[in-house]
């Protein structure tokens, strides 16, 4: 892939990203299969970083695999597990392995994961991490010391367009832009009305926005997310739509809903692209794209 992810986003093309969840262990078979399946169908692949505070194969390792197989990688980097020295060291390493995109995240809280007694580091947080990348690009570390060989990244961040209340999130979004984030991948959006409102606000900033699409597989999953996942709001009509299909057809309906949303977002140019999170159902992403006409 000759063109960088930044170039692709700046070209005005409707951009598609998806994500790879690394394995818990050293068996990379499935991960490699997912990379091979998706690398040429999307513009870049995120690799999650101990997602939901569950210890896994590292995002950095996953990104190197993507590069080795000719794909474009987005390094998800959270502040939960590393202090500022470790974060900077990993960024230097990532750069030397050809990784050029970084998604700067604070990270989930420790107690939601599978090492509940661990210490959450949070020496930095997302806004400070974005600034740190920008500082390192200028040739020094954040201790003010000169780097022998600097970095250059395309830094992105996340935003939750359906958070309640939304105002503090919008202020934080603004802070991330000011810190130097150039692209945003959003938390899952299902209510396009809400998302349009968010985009109306976001459009005043010179950043690219990719709408988060999380595949729904059943009405139960939708209700579960509404009750348990902060910042996610699945409207009742989508829940009804999922509940209305015969048993065993939930996934198919979910694929249809995801594809329909992607097409609407693209046709109405609501934002610059989509970020598809299939969470364990990566196999189905090509089908979603095909139905969406992409």
């Amino acid at each position: 892939m000759a063109e960088s992810f930044r170039d692709v986003l700046n070209s005005g093309k409707f951009v598609i990203t998806s994500e790879i969840g690394p394995p818990k262990g050293t068996n990379l078979e499935k991960t490699l299969h997912h990379i091979d399946l998706l690398k040429d169908k999307v513009d870049a692949l995120n690799v999650t970083d101990n997602q939901s505070s569950v210890m896994r194969y590292p995002s950095l390792g996953g990104c190197i695999l993507i590069k080795e197989r000719g794909g474009e990688a987005i390094l998800q980097m959270t502040c939960r597990d590393r202090n500022r020295l470790a974060l900077q060291a990993d960024i230097l390493f990532a750069y030397t392995r050809g990784i050029r995109n970084i998604l700067c995240l604070t990270g989930d809280s420790i107690p939601v994961g599978d090492h509940k007694e661990a210490k959450g580091v949070f020496d930095l947080e997302s806004v400070q991490l974005i600034r740190m990348v920008r500082t390192m690009e200028s040739g020094t570390d954040i201790g003010g010391n000169e780097l022998n060989g600097a970095i250059e990244f395309y830094p992105g961040a996340i935003v939750t367009p359906e958070a309640n209340p939304i105002e503090p999130q919008l202020h934080k979004f603004k802070k991330k832009v000011a810190a130097g984030a150039e692209f945003f991948q959003t938390q899952a959006v299902y209510d396009l009305g809400n998302f349009r409102n968010f985009m109306q606000y976001a459009r005043q900033f010179n950043v690219k926005i990719l709408a988060g699409i999380v595949l729904l597989v059943s009405a139960r999953m939708a209700k579960f997310m509404n009750d348990n996942v902060p910042g996610i709001f699945v409207p009742q009509e989508l829940i009804d739509e999922l509940a209305g299909v015969e048993k065993g057809k939930g996934l198919q309906k979910g694929v249809e809903i995801a594809a329909r949303m992607i097409r609407t977002i693209k046709d109405e140019s609501i934002c610059d692209g989509v970020h598809i999170m299939a969470i364990g159902k990566e196999e189905i992403v090509p089908e979603i794209l095909a139905i969406a006409g992409l």
Binding site: G120, E125, S126, N164
Partner: peptide
């Protein structure tokens, strides 16, 4: 819970904490 200095995380939920 994360000691954030620059605003809420995405885990904020109707004014409550995700943990």
């Amino acid at each position: 819970t994360k000691g954030l200095l620059n605003g809420p995380c995405g885990g904020t939920n109707n004014g409550k904490c995700e943990v």
